[in-house]
Computed example of a mutant assay.
Amino acid sequence: MSERAAPFYCPYCGDEDLRPSDEGHGAWECGACNRAFRLKFLGLLTRGLQRADHEGDERI
């Protein structure tokens, strides 16, 4: 498993002043808006990727 992925910006204010939180894995703090949030990977979707067909409105 690779190292944890870091968010590029705050989901609330969009600022990039982020740092890991002491609250545990996936927890982050934003220095700009003073909010804390947690990121969590839920899993892969079972339906997979669906692309629109260029010639019609059908999906593959």
Results as ranks from 00 to 15, higher is better:
Ser2Tyr: 02
Glu3Trp: 07
Glu3Asn: 08
Glu3Ser: 02
Arg4Cys: 00
Arg4Gln: 09
Arg4Ala: 07
Ala5Arg: 04
Ala5Cys: 01
Ala5Trp: 11
Ala5Thr: 06
Ala6Met: 12
Ala6Leu: 12
Ala6His: 10
Pro7Asp: 11
Phe8Arg: 11
Phe8Asp: 13
Phe8Leu: 05
Phe8Ser: 13
Tyr9Ile: 00
Cys10Phe: 04
Cys10Gly: 11
Cys10Pro: 04
Pro11Ala: 06
Pro11His: 01
Pro11Glu: 03
Pro11Met: 04
Pro11Arg: 01
Tyr12Gln: 10
Tyr12Pro: 11
Cys13Val: 09
Cys13Asn: 05
Cys13Lys: 02
Cys13Leu: 08
Cys13Ala: 01
Gly14Lys: 05
Gly14Cys: 04
Asp15Ala: 15
Asp15Phe: 14
Asp15Leu: 00
Asp15Asn: 03
Asp15Cys: 14
Asp15Gly: 12
Glu16Phe: 10
Glu16Gln: 08
Glu16Trp: 07
Glu16Asp: 05
Asp17Glu: 12
Asp17Ile: 05
Asp17Arg: 14
Asp17Thr: 05
Asp17Val: 11
Asp17Met: 08
Leu18Pro: 11
Arg19Cys: 10
Arg19Pro: 00
Arg19Thr: 03
Arg19Ala: 08
Pro20His: 10
Pro20Leu: 02
Pro20Val: 02
Asp22Thr: 00
Asp22Leu: 13
Asp22Gln: 13
Asp22Pro: 00
Glu23Pro: 00
Gly24His: 09
Gly24Leu: 11
Gly24Phe: 07
His25Val: 13
His25Trp: 06
His25Lys: 15
His25Arg: 14
His25Asn: 13
Gly26Tyr: 07
Ala27Gln: 03
Ala27Tyr: 09
Ala27Asp: 11
Trp28Tyr: 13
Trp28Leu: 02
Glu29Cys: 10
Glu29Tyr: 05
Cys30Ile: 03
Cys30Tyr: 01
Cys30Gly: 03
Gly31Gln: 07
Gly31Leu: 06
Ala32Met: 02
Cys33Asn: 08
Cys33Lys: 03
Ala36Trp: 01
Phe37Leu: 08
Phe37Met: 09
Arg38Tyr: 13
Leu39Asp: 11
Leu39Ser: 02
Leu39Thr: 15
Lys40Gly: 06
Phe41Lys: 15
Phe41Tyr: 14
Phe41Glu: 09
Leu42Asn: 11
Gly43Gln: 07
Gly43His: 10
Gly43Thr: 09
Gly43Met: 04
Leu44Lys: 15
Leu44His: 09
Leu44Gln: 15
Leu44Met: 14
Leu45Asp: 10
Leu45Val: 01
Thr46Trp: 12
Thr46Pro: 12
Thr46Arg: 11
Arg47Met: 08
Arg47Thr: 00
Gly48Val: 02
Leu49Pro: 00
Leu49Gly: 01
Leu49Phe: 14
Gln50Ser: 13
Gln50Cys: 05
Arg51Glu: 15
Ala52Asn: 10
Ala52Gln: 05
Asp53Ser: 14
Asp53Glu: 07
His54Leu: 00
His54Arg: 04
Glu55Leu: 12
Glu55Tyr: 03
Glu55Thr: 14
Glu55Ser: 11
Glu55Gln: 10
Asp57Glu: 14
Asp57Gly: 01
Glu58Gly: 07
Glu58Asn: 04
Glu58Ile: 03
Glu58Arg: 04
Glu58Gln: 04
Glu58Pro: 00
Arg59Ala: 08
Arg59Asp: 09
Arg59Cys: 06
Ile60Ser: 11
Ile60Gln: 15
Ile60Tyr: 12
Ile60Met: 10
Ile60Trp: 15
